[in-house]
Each structure stands twice: as structure tokens, then as C-alpha cells.
């Protein structure tokens, strides 16, 4: 053993999830996650997605061999600082209200000339299968860290998207009669030990919305709002929500507008 070896202190946070998140009775899941997070310091594996996303953003690709640096996310071509905090929004060129993910699909197909089937092939990563959309979303969202959510809801189509999202939020269906509102319209409630944000209030929506995308420790994956919505609806026993659909964007608009004024803190790290 060399002299240097003796000075090595290992702060390995690479324990099994089960071991690090086993809950003493009085500890809430938030406290357990905060403790787990503290072991990481400021580190978040989401950075691995941000790095990959940055490379994808800057690399010329597709039939036109251009990068995404001319992609307009609403604040002008190539402007990513603060862009995520102002989405979803109305886009003149597509004549649609778009969230970040659907806007990226537009840029990758129209601007870069990548086939849509290729762009949408892996919407959500799973181990070896990596999602470009998740990585780029992480990179772009990180550039809004510290920005205030600003959803003015000026355009009629933005208002309509909000109205659709709000209606879907309260829509009860499926064998269990669940709506989003079943779990997310009261304050201070939990499912098992998991605290539920009251998404109908500014405070609750801000707490939730400002922290997506997030690295999900239990899955070892970075997840975006599109994933979050699909997975909530899966738990509601409903069929598969289509990625980038008007309902997905409507729900995102409902949450984003309710979170108006909140300070973006994503990608975050979650259970």
C-alpha cells in the first residue's frame, strides 16, 4: 500500500437505493431524500444527461447537417437561457401551442431533417437504450435554473390549452374513477409516505413543476414532464397518453400556468 493510499477517504454514495432510503418511522420521504441528496453534495446524475444533451444540441446532424443552435424555443433562434420557464407557448410557424419536448421534435425534424420516426424512436430511456429527447430536454431545462416561470397566457390558443388541461385534470374515468384531482387537489395529503402536491394552488404547482425534469434514483433515469404525465395516467389505470398530444400539452400548460412566478430548479433529483 502506497503512502498516498492512506490519505484516501472514500465518500461513496454509490450504495444500493434500498439501503440508503430505508425509512425510520418518523422520517418523511422528503427528509430521507434530502439526506440522500446531501450525500451527493451538489452533484446530480442528471448532469450526465445534460452533457449528452449539450453535445446533441451542438452537433450538426440530419439530412441538413445543422445543429440545433438555430432552433427557436420561443426566445429567438438558439436562445436557451430562460426558455424552458416560458414554455409551453404558442408558435407562429407551427400554429400550435408546444411544450419543450414537442418543440424539440419540430426542430429536429424541420430544421435538421431527421426522420420523425427516428426522433421519436426512444422517447424515454431504459438502461442501454438512451433517449435523445430526454437528454436535450435536460440540457435546455438546466439553462432555466433560477428563472421565474412566466406563462402570460396571452394567445387564445394558450388559453384554450389551459382550459383543456384544467378540464382533463378533473376528468374522472377508468375502473378506479381516478382524476388527477383525486390525489392532487387537497393540501398536506400523502399516498403511503409520498407527499402529494396540491396542483390547483400556486404553491403546490410551483413546488412540483419547478423540479421537473428530474433524475429518478429508483429508475436510474432522467425523466421529463411528458414522462411524468404519462406515468400518472398509467397509475390512474388509463390508456397510453400520446407524446406531444394536445392533452399532454394542455396538462403541462395547466401546471405551468398554476406555477407562474415559481423559480425553476430543474433538473432535480427525486426518489
Amino acid at each position: 500500500m502506497s503512502v498516498q493510499d492512506r490519505y484516501i477517504s472514500l465518500v461513496a454514495a454509490c450504495t444500493l437505493l434500498g439501503a440508503s432510503l430505508s425509512l425510520p418511522a418518523e422520517q418523511t420521504s422528503e427528509e430521507a431524500i434530502a439526506e440522500y441528496h446531501a450525500m451527493f453534495g451538489d452533484e446530480n446524475p442528471a448532469e450526465l444527461w445534460q452533457l449528452r444533451g449539450e453535445e446533441l444540441w451542438k452537433t450538426p446532424r440530419g439530412s441538413r447537417q445543422v445543429s440545433l443552435e438555430a432552433c427557436d424555443l420561443g426566445k429567438g433562434p438558439g436562445v436557451i437561457a430562460g426558455a424552458y420557464a416560458e414554455l409551453p407557448r404558442w408558435f407562429e410557424d407551427t400554429g400550435k401551442v408546444q411544450d419543450l419536448e414537442s418543440r424539440l421534435v419540430t426542430c429536429m425534424t424541420n430544421l435538421q431533417g431527421l426522420p420523425e420516426s427516428e426522433v421519436l424512436a426512444v422517447k424515454f430511456g431504459d438502461g442501454e437504450q438512451k433517449s435523445e429527447l430526454e437528454a436535450i430536454t435536460a440540457y435546455v431545462a438546466a439553462a432555466s435554473r433560477g428563472s421565474r416561470i412566466t406563462i402570460p397566457l396571452d394567445h387564445a390558443a394558450e388559453k384554450a390549452a389551459y382550459a383543456l388541461g384544467e378540464s382533463v385534470f378533473f376528468y374522472r374515468a377508468g375502473p378506479h374513477d381516478f382524476a388527477c384531482a383525486t390525489c392532487h387537489s387537497e393540501s398536506g395529503k400523502r399516498i403511503r409516505l409520498q407527499t402529494l402536491p396540491q396542483l390547483t394552488t400556486s404553491e403546490g404547482a410551483q413546488a412540483a413543476y419547478t423540479r421537473w425534469p428530474a433524475y429518478r434514483v429508483s429508475q436510474g433515469e432522467l425523466r421529463t414532464m411528458e414522462w411524468r404525465l404519462q406515468d400518472c395516467l398509467r397509475q390512474q389505470r388509463l390508456p397510453q397518453l400520446t407524446y406531444g398530444s394536445d392533452v399532454a400539452i394542455g396538462l403541462t400548460m395547466y401546471l405551468a400556468r398554476n406555477a407562474n412566478g415559481g423559480e425553476m430548479a430543474a433538473p432535480s433529483i427525486k426518489r
Binding site: S2, Q4, D5, Y7, I8, S9, L10, V11, A12, A13, C14, T15, L16, L17, F40, G41, E43, P45, L48, G127, V217, G220
Partner: peptide, 25 residues
């Protein structure tokens, strides 16, 4: 040119591991 740290890992280490250590020199 010197190995300042060497670690043997197994299957109990999590996906996308985070690893931290300190050394002198």
C-alpha cells in the same frame, strides 16, 4: 504517473454511480 486511488467494485453499486474521494500529493 502514480495510481492515487484504486477501487474494486461489485454488483451492489447503483446505476450511474456517484463516487467521491480525496488524495494528497
Amino acid at each position: 504517473g502514480k495510481t492515487v486511488m484504486k477501487a474494486g467494485w461489485g454488483p451492489s453499486v447503483s446505476k450511474n454511480p456517484y463516487f467521491s474521494f480525496r488524495f494528497k500529493g
